[in-house]
Simulated scan of single mutants.
Amino acid sequence: MTFGVELRKAVDTRAAAALLATIGVLVAAVTGAQLAFADDRTWASVVANAQQPVSVLTPLLGLLLVTGEWSQRTALTTFVLVPVRSRVVVAKFLAASVLSLLVTAAGFAITFVLLLGSEWRFSGSVVLQLTLVNWLTTMFGTSFGLLLWHSAPAIVVYYVVPFGWTFVGRIVPGLERVSPWLDIGQSRTPLAGPGVEAGEWAQLGTSSLLWIALPAAVGVLRLNRADLS
């Protein structure tokens, strides 16, 4: 019951509807532009680039699902109806996960339709890897929403802090070796193509713990201690 309510909350707003429509339009536009103008028209390249709008914008749906409780002042009502706060958190993450999978599938469907008539070779591993990337970025956004509670600062921190870390990791001597282990943006890049190595999976796991599991854990601790009266 809680999961269904949270899933409906994730899409039943004008902001969510606008985001979903924007994602669909951008996926079609990116695919069409690459097929029409780009030199690299390989299947993996087209599909990976078409999933970029999904990866960039879908996390906002998870973030807004969490922060909406405070921006819309429904937190007290929600946690009165469901006193076990962890149940609400789990339901929100499950709803964000399902939404990520559905949006990703829709993005693939749009791309595949536009690729009809072209020469392309399907790669199941790339599809699964891009689906994982989109799910991780959605969990990333949801975790930051749970950590910060308010939409504007959560969105700013979600986009700015990882970008800042990537920049620092590339220009500061000595950090280039540890950066792939701590930079989720860098560690997920290999998943856009086939042949991901064991070390790259390990880097993805480590960076995900830092940028997803840690903010979520701190957010849950903060929520359990908060006075919502």
Rank of each mutant, 00 (worst) to 15 (best):
R170H: 13
V127D: 05
G169E: 06
Q186A: 12
G174M: 03
P162H: 01
F163D: 03
P153H: 00
W149L: 12
L146Y: 07
G174W: 00
L191R: 14
P153V: 02
G193L: 11
M139L: 15
L130M: 11
W135G: 14
L136W: 01
T131V: 13
G164Q: 05
R177L: 01
E176F: 06
F144V: 11
M139C: 09
S151Q: 06
S187G: 13
V133E: 04
G145A: 05
F140W: 10
L175H: 08
D183F: 15
V157F: 08
Y159T: 04
L130Q: 14
M139Q: 15
V172L: 11
S151N: 05
A152S: 04
V127P: 02
W181S: 09
G145C: 06
F163T: 13
P194Q: 06
L136F: 05
T189C: 02
L136N: 05
V172G: 09
L146R: 09
V168M: 00
R170Y: 13
P190S: 13
H150I: 07
W181H: 09
R177I: 00
V126M: 05
D183R: 09
G185N: 15
W135E: 13
D183S: 10
L128W: 11
P153F: 00
I171N: 04
Q186V: 06
W135T: 11
T142Y: 06
R177Q: 09
A154C: 02
V156D: 02
L147A: 06
L146K: 10
I184S: 05
I184C: 04
F140I: 14
L146F: 11
G174K: 00
S187Y: 14
S187P: 09
L136T: 13
T189K: 12
G174Q: 02
L128T: 09
L132N: 08
P173T: 01
V133K: 11
G145Y: 03
